[in-house]
């Protein structure tokens, strides 16, 4: 068995909400492997976003250990976490989070300018099929186009891990499928470990493995014997 790229050991996360303590993650143990496509499934409030935040270096666990490429990262300082994200993590959000003041290609350049091993921004845009729209501003694009720009921005630094938080949540089915195609293409072409979190069960069919979270616990991890391509998805 290959070494996992990322590993959590007994990870817990507790939030203090006023006088009440909310346990968002309870004893989470999981491993993510190089180049695999993982779907993190769960209902609203199941803890999937919290887990993504911890895996992506946006938050720290209350207890437990977190390893990336064999190195323990849960005790990193803010600055170290920032640099970890800069070099290794790509994010795609439900609301795209593009900088409205920058054109498509500039949004990509924003990341390539600070990365140590970036790809050409135009190449990244070609991968998501938006080379022709490079000079347009987010306000001049459709939701699907904006999300594909966000994908290009996330992969342009050639991250080891790509986290996609409800990437189709704000899109219609047709556009959502186009976006998932792009994500799948990136995973295949670049071999980037991809984690998609969603409450949409249909999306799970395109994953290598499906991790289901219920009330902050990993309920089960399923390996798909046969995964289907994004364009065959239906919901």
């Amino acid at each position: 068995m290959a070494q996992p790229l990322m590993k959590t050991i007994h990870v817990n996360k507790t939030y203090a909400m006023g006088e009440v303590e909310v346990k968002a993650l309870i004893d989470v143990n999981l491993e993510l492997y190089e180049s695999e496509f993982v779907v993190l499934l769960g209902h609203s409030g199941s803890g999937k976003s919290t887990l993504l935040n911890i895996l992506g270096g946006l938050d720290r666990p209350t207890s437990g250990e977190l390893y990336f490429a064999g190195e323990r990262i849960d005790q990193y300082s803010d600055r170290e976490l920032t640099l970890f994200r800069r070099e290794n993590i790509g994010f795609i959000f439900q609301m795209y989070n593009l900088i409205p003041r920058l054109s498509g290609v500039e949004n990509v350049e924003l990341v390539t300018e600070i990365s140590s091993n970036p790809m050409d921004p135009i190449e990244a845009l070609s991968l998501v099929g938006l080379k022709e729209r490079a000079g347009h501003f987010p306000s001049q694009m459709s939701g699907g186009e904006q999300q594909r720009i966000a994908i290009a921005r996330a992969i342009a630094k050639q991250p080891r891990l790509l986290f996609c938080d409800e990437p189709t949540g704000a899109l219609d089915v047709k556009t959502g499928i186009m976006v998932l195609e792009a994500i799948q293409k990136v995973n295949k072409t670049l071999g980037t470990t991809t984690i998609v979190i969603t409450h949409n069960v249909a999306i799970a069919e395109m994953a290598d493995r499906v991790i289901t979270l219920v009330d902050g616990r990993v309920e089960h991890i399923k390996t798909n014997q046969q995964k289907i391509s994004a364009q065959d998805l239906k919901w």
Binding site: R79, L83, E87, I99, L110, V111, I114, R153, K157
Partner: peptide
């Protein structure tokens, strides 16, 4: 603030 948070998430340090 949202834009600033996005930049930080993308890997920009606070001083940047």
């Amino acid at each position: 603030d949202w834009e600033m948070a996005t930049l930080e998430i993308l890997g920009f340090t606070v001083p940047e």
